[in-house]
Design a protein around this nucleic acid. Sequence first.
DNA 1: TTTAATTGCGCAATAT
DNA 2: GATATTGCGCAATTAA
Lengths: 117, 117
Amino acid sequence: MPRRGRVKKEGPESGEDSDEYRKRRDRNNLAVKRSRVKSKQKTQETVNRVSELRNENTVLEEKVKTLTKELGFLKELFLAHASNNVDASKFEGVNFQKLFEDNSSAGTSNDNINNTS
Amino acid sequence: MPRRGRVKKEGPESGEDSDEYRKRRDRNNLAVKRSRVKSKQKTQETVNRVSELRNENTVLEEKVKTLTKELGFLKELFLAHASNNVDASKFEGVNFQKLFEDNSSAGTSNDNINNTS
DNA sequence: TTTAATTGCGCAATAT
DNA sequence: GATATTGCGCAATTAA
């Protein structure tokens, strides 16, 4: 990136008579203001975006927690029932072992159902 | 917030001899640079934070999706079994109706178990 | 080429 | 008193 900024402090070097020069300076100064306002807005929006995302994140984490609990509850229910007096045939070959393994990252593939009959 | 920035273009007004003045100016210019570097770093970190949060968010959303599917699968399993030929007594008073209502936002309160026997 | 937008830099007022 | 921030203007560069 090439050099920028003032190096010398000469007078209106880029221009002609002070008249046109000033017009150009004034216009540029306005452009600079616009640009800086825009820049600050963007920064602020980014900061706000962080807040939004943190909120969404919290909600999602709670949701995961809740779902995990529900799932755990159902699994316990199943297992309790199964270990006590299961009539496994009624579930038509559902492989509970596999179903209740740690499959947090698994989809709902029907690998859990093997027609063992 | 009060006025800032140059208003006049006088010479070393805040100071004394050009010597001490320049020293002060130079030190301030360095401070300005440090301050602006820091500012840009902070902005960049905020931008990065947004990326991180978006990633976490995606992961969490997938997790919710997976868990929801698993839960749905178990519920269907339950219901299918229940509607076909349930021997509900084996579940010792579990209220399937309530259990399978939309309780995404509910905890794992044992309200689902009512000793109806 | 002309004009607007960005950006590095310095000044001075102000904030800490 | 010294450093840190910040509004503002200048000029160089870049983008339209």
